[in-house]
Design a protein around this nucleic acid. Structure first.
Lengths: 94, 94
DNA sequence: CTTTTTGGTTTATTTTATAAACTATTTTAT
DNA sequence: ATAAAATAGTTTATAAAATAAACCAAAAAG
């Protein structure tokens, strides 16, 4: 029987966010917005979901006087991502 | 920038259906139901969507006097699946 | 100084996925 | 023979998600 796909990761935008965060130390909101080609609203919502699940850590600070949102994947997030990829391979292997 | 993921394929159940249909000549409704571990209702709905998109072909006949629904992936479906897999690889490559 | 841009959040709307209810036939048990 | 349960689905309703639209505060530009 086919494996379950973590529904939190099985979403284009959240998967994109996690994929990027897997490959960098940390990423700013605007960077993620550009890379994922998403709207700010959608990105904000999805980042919150990943954060609530403990998959990422969000830090809100200021760059000068502008708000700055910085995201970083957590160990839990890394593990979840890796498990998701393994499950997914069952579906897409030739 | 990250590639688009065909939303019709980016759904656990529909991806599971397509994944199975990629590996067999054809499959019966009950077989798909068992393999994907889905409810009949959900399976019925998702098969219709794949069929409407032209990704699969559904044939309804009878086995004796019981209804028999047989599904087969189309060329268009194969192409879409392959493109989806390629796009997905962008997201999950290490 | 008022308009636009930046960097977001919140709320509303649309779309999806899932579940529940239903139909028709068939098999099993009484 | 017939009531109960199982098979093979479909249709409709509900819950959950994704997306878009509206909004806010501060800063930069004209």
């Amino acid at each position: 029987m086919l494996a379950e796909l973590d529904p939190l990761l099985h979403s284009q935008l959240r998967l994109g966010i996690m994929s990027i965060l897997m490959s960098v130390e940390s990423a700013e909101f605007t960077f993620l917005k550009e890379k994922t080609n998403s709207t700010a609203g959608n990105l904000s919502v999805q980042l919150d979901k990943l954060s609530e699940a403990g998959y990422i850590h969000i830090e809100k600070s200021f760059k000068g006087k502008k708000p700055l949102t910085t995201c970083k994947i957590t160990n839990k997030g890394i593990k979840a991502f890796e498990e998701y990829v393994n499950a997914l391979k069952q579906y897409i292997k030739p």
